[in-house]
Write a protein that binds this DNA or RNA. Sequence first.
DNA 1: ACGGAGATGTGACGGATCTCACACTTTACA
DNA 2: TGTAAAGTGTGAGATCCGTCACATCTCCGT
Lengths: 236, 236
Amino acid sequence: MSALQAFEEKKRFVHLKELLRSANHIQKIKKGTFLFQEGMVANELYLILSGKIQTGKICQDGKEMCFRICSAGEIIGELTLFTSEPKYLLTAKVIEDGEVAVIKKDYLEEQLLLNPTLTFEYMQWLSNYARRTQTKFHDLILRGKKGALYSTLIRMCNSYGVRLKNGSILIDLPLKNQDLANFCGTTRESVNRMLNSLKQKGVISIAKGKITIHDLDYLKKEVQCENCPVEICRIE
Amino acid sequence: MSALQAFEEKKRFVHLKELLRSANHIQKIKKGTFLFQEGMVANELYLILSGKIQTGKICQDGKEMCFRICSAGEIIGELTLFTSEPKYLLTAKVIEDGEVAVIKKDYLEEQLLLNPTLTFEYMQWLSNYARRTQTKFHDLILRGKKGALYSTLIRMCNSYGVRLKNGSILIDLPLKNQDLANFCGTTRESVNRMLNSLKQKGVISIAKGKITIHDLDYLKKEVQCENCPVEICRIE
DNA sequence: ACGGAGATGTGACGGATCTCACACTTTACA
DNA sequence: TGTAAAGTGTGAGATCCGTCACATCTCCGT
């Protein structure tokens, strides 16, 4: 599945990404730094060329909620376009070195209004984004923490899964227990216990910090997955 | 606050709403019926002229998650525009008789691409929608069920609050415990207990099925509210 | 190869929340 | 205005989940 899907995904929003790529300048990003932080005035968007970025919300009490993990080809800094109060709602942390194409918000808005093809693609992108967030919403709230974790794992498969020869799916992304906890709104310890219980059942295994899913159907059944389209059921 | 805000809100997206209002036809909606249901092919959008509509997700096991309660001036059926798989993700239940203006998705998409003013307004609307969903997200997940309820109440104030002479805020919407539970992803009983505890503390009172907030600051403090803009911190 | 930092694994306990059961109150409307 | 239906209030017990504490493991740099 994954290869074809990735290919299809790459072909989407080509004009939009072309515009972004042709942008004012390229910026190197370094692991551990922030591309932007919550509350900052937002006047730029980014297209990831390489590396990985995690967006999320960091609370005063140290809690952290993770929204997306994005890699090459993804657009970041969205949602600020055309808004009256252009401040980033989230923080974007670099988790793998790389480069982003930087584009000024004003310029992009201008281009979008001039070019219907771009308009179309951007709206498509934004609608998809909103639909993704909305489905995540009930996944995370409706079936307790276990449901939250399972559905996060399913999304990870759709976004970063690599099908192995034996049919299992490797989530090709180094994920710590704490990271998953931040995605699910739970704690490291709870994630650890749940993952171990999945290991014992033979549903998953973990090697070198990466999770392999052996029995995706088990997870799907547990969360009463409705097999919504893959462009919606993903993590980024 | 509320009066002015409502006024400001009314002035937003005027061209977009004008287009919707000039639509193909007007449809009467009757309490208890569904405007559309999850999974249906989506080829229409609606502008509410009067009455109230609740959108949400209904699960097989009877659980229900409520997303928005919308009244006159709100747009419903969104998020299907420009998507490749145009199916409604949510169900829209009429909770108060009224009328909606119906507009064909195809026609609206066409108009949007022709008219930059419309494009601009729609994007603005969609961005706001996405931002609203995103902030709700962590409000509901990060601070337990109590946090979920409190933040729902705060949003209700911003959307349906009427400031009374004594400074309290009446949420001018008949809300059952079960409704609030569906917004928060919790149970009727839990909501009931939490509301009663708030009553005892004098933070709220309830009369004729409507909640009045006496001490909004108490709620805000409890959820570490960051006073995000009102167009984002709302229920619809 | 070693030491230490960071990550994982796990028990014990407590509080939050759900579930079930049922009494009571309010509302709708015949 | 009486009566059923719908909604609310509340206890008890079970379960989920977070917190704390600490042991163990893994990986990385020197």
